[in-house]
Design a protein around this nucleic acid. Structure first.
Lengths: 189, 189
DNA sequence: TAACACCTACCTGTATGTAGGTAGTTGTAA
DNA sequence: TTACAACTACCTACATACAGGTAGGTGTTA
């Protein structure tokens, strides 16, 4: 999103990018080192272990999410959701990336407990924001869905990563179709 | 599912199981070798490269899917879909596995072209079966959804893997909620 | 002069994969 | 029925590569 200045931030940015593209385990320090023109060992200077970098990536993504919710604090519910969807459109078009949450969820059984916890807590944060936003839009009669907002929030939590997964195999038309259906869940025509 | 007899089949079964749990790349020959009480090199006897085993796993899963569709050929549409859902319930309860398709989709940018193709084709097969089944159930008035069956099939293709992903982080209640909503997509209240 | 940002050089573990061998089984043909 | 060839299902031992990580150094800047 925003261009990072110092090396540490750039390592996190690049790390996140790679992890979203190829996953936490396939990602390695060499790729970042090459791109930043520094040596492998220098990354250990900032992040002693790979877990540290993983945690930093999750935290960075969480902060970016919080920043987005702040920015759209006073916007319409629909605009909030569209801002979130825009991220996913970006992920898909920019190298068929997964979102950070689904990246770590894909590797969930092979990451440390601390990373599992960080990912889960981040997930809860997004879910509760989604729930609140859905309720908000319902009360303002922007939306007209019938099921409990909590349920729909969970559907979104599953459908957004899911759209990226099937989009990887089925291509843009498939991705677009799922995102289109996602928007439809707000209306009970 | 069914107990495999010979070593080759058992390698595929175990390989699939591990891949669903920890992903294609984290999985390694040693784990299987230990469990089957054979040596690492013996696996190469059956599957010269890891790609060969990956392809065999995809093919095995595809065959199992075809077998399921055959078995339920004359069943009600709802029973067909419930049979599919049962698989996902099983995946989740049995070690929070992903389905084979989402496993390879998670690693999509890091697997060979042949594996990408095999996974994509398998995905198309499932999608078209889902589409046909949804149409079938609609005509029989088992379902009452409003959107095109193609769209809903894609939603299922995204929502089923998605339920496993969020279930890993949010636990059984989250998983159940998404599966519950999945069933609801068939009715337009 | 102390902290910082980076370096060279190296250790260790582990993964896929290969070369070549052996014990037992099966097919074939005198 | 015996005899030999070929195959199957493994094995030991090793090659190769590359990952994460460490120890200890250098040059620059506050």
């Amino acid at each position: 999103m925003n261009t990072a200045q110092n090396t540490k931030d750039r390592i996190v940015e690049l790390g996140r990018d790679y992890m979203q593209r190829i996953g936490y385990h396939s990602f390695n320090y060499k790729q970042i080192a090459l791109e930043l023109n520094i040596k492998n060992a220098s990354i250990h200077h900032y992040f002693p272990s790979k877990e540290d970098l993983g945690l930093a990536v999750i935290e960075k993504d969480r902060q970016d999410f919080i920043q987005l919710t702040q920015k759209y604090r006073k916007a319409k519910a629909m605009d909030k959701l569209e801002a979130l969807i825009a991220n996913y459109e970006y992920f898909f078009s920019e190298g068929r990336k997964l979102c950070v949450l689904s990246t770590f969820s894909s590797s969930y059984n092979e990451i440390t407990e601390r990373m599992q916890l960080a990912a889960s807590q981040y997930g809860e944060l997004v879910t509760s924001w989604l729930t609140a936003t859905l309720k908000e839009g319902l009360e303002a009669r922007e939306f007209s869905f019938k099921e409990p907002a909590e349920d729909l929030a969970n559907v979104w939590m599953a459908l957004m990563p899911g759209s990226l997964l099937v989009g990887r195999m089925g291509g843009k038309p498939t991705f677009d179709r799922v995102i289109g259906s996602l928007r439809q869940t707000l209306k009970s025509s």
